[in-house]
């Protein structure tokens, strides 16, 4: 492969992986801390993208759209937690699956009612519209580089928050022992509300960031949800570190899988099958370490 194309694919793969991490880390945090499996997580990614599209059109400014969209998602998250999610903490996974599946249907129809079923695109903000030339013919868009940097900053911020702050300590304590945390006088209800709101806001924010590089379309939420499940299964449930490693791995495998044509034992493996490669990876991880790369060992 041409080294420049290789570089571009590498950057694309990392960027896709980092974006996946934003969505998957929210999913894994909500599960790791609150014990809730949120099937509707992908819906927030989709809502974020539509919000970015609609708000940019309304406000005429991508940055204002990003900011107001993020605030809106946090508020939406807190509202949803208060309305629905808080009733699920002591319930079986099954009721969580049921309720959050219901939410998927509701969000999908609401999106259809409010914004329609069309595919849209969002213009890259003028400030980041340029490209960095790699060779005379190849260039890499500035927006994609900026997007990767934002993701890294957010990931670093999350790491600092969890490892080194009082809030992070509360989060870690809440994850390991709900009763103990409560007896320490920590308002676990508020903590959970914040974690949920922050978790889904991460997904929505990822959707907003992705809007200018991918198109905005109805099925985008479900697609990202499934890839996030693969990320979480590979990385280990509740592990933010694992989510990062797995997301980057999947980003790279998926991106390179789409451009490289392999030959295995005389059979040409078509790029159409690239979509399968991430699932094959998941199968291997399940065989080798069923608890995920960074999950706790069982025995």
């Amino acid at each position: 492969m041409d080294p420049h194309i290789f570089l571009i694919q590498l950057l694309n793969g990392v960027q896709y992986g980092l974006l996946l991490f934003l969505v998957a880390s929210g999913l894994t945090l909500i599960f790791g801390i609150m014990g809730v499996i949120n099937l509707a997580h992908g819906s927030f990614y989709m809502l974020g993208a539509y919000l970015a599209w609609s708000l940019t059109a309304q406000l005429g400014n991508f940055w204002l759209a990003l900011l107001s969209g993020f605030v809106l998602s946090v508020v939406l998250g807190m509202l949803l937690e208060w309305l629905f999610i808080r009733h699920l903490y002591r319930r079986d996974h099954l009721q969580q699956v049921l309720l959050t599946y219901g939410l998927i249907l509701i969000f999908s129809e609401l999106r259809s009612i409010v914004w329609g079923d069309d595919v849209h695109s969002v213009a890259v903000p003028a400030l980041l519209a340029g490209s960095i030339p790699l060779t005379e013919t190849l260039a890499y868009p500035v927006y994609r580089i900026w997007l990767s940097i934002i993701c890294v900053v957010l990931a670093a911020g999350m790491y600092y928050l969890i490892q080194h702050t009082r809030l992070g300590m509360m989060i870690r304590a809440g994850a390991s022992n709900r009763e103990m945390t409560q007896s320490l006088g920590i308002d676990i209800g508020l903590l959970y509300r914040l974690v949920f709101a922050f978790g889904i806001a991460l997904a929505a924010f990822a959707g907003m960031l992705a809007a200018p590089v991918s198109s905005v379309y109805p099925g985008m939420g479900n697609q990202v949800l499934i890839i996030c499940f693969v990320v979480v299964v590979i990385g280990g449930i509740g592990s933010v570190k694992g989510a990062m490693a797995a997301a980057l791995l999947i980003g790279l495998v998926d991106t390179f899988g789409k451009v490289v044509e392999f030959e295995i034992g005389g059979f040409r493996v078509l790029p159409e099958l690239a979509g399968m490669s991430v699932f094959v990876m998941m199968a291997i991880v399940l065989l080798w370490r069923p608890e995920g790369l960074f999950g706790a060992r069982l025995r």
Binding site: F31, I37, H93, V97, I226, F229, V230, V232, V233, I237, G275, M276, F279, M282, A283, L286, L287, P290, E291, G292
Partner: peptide, 21 residues
């Protein structure tokens, strides 16, 4: 033979992922 090695929420995610595959 793959998904039954896991349990709980892992099982939910892995079954969905393989079906999507």
């Amino acid at each position: 033979s793959l998904v039954v090695r896991t349990g709980g929420i892992f099982f939910i995610m892995a079954t969905l992922a393989f079906a999507e595959m």
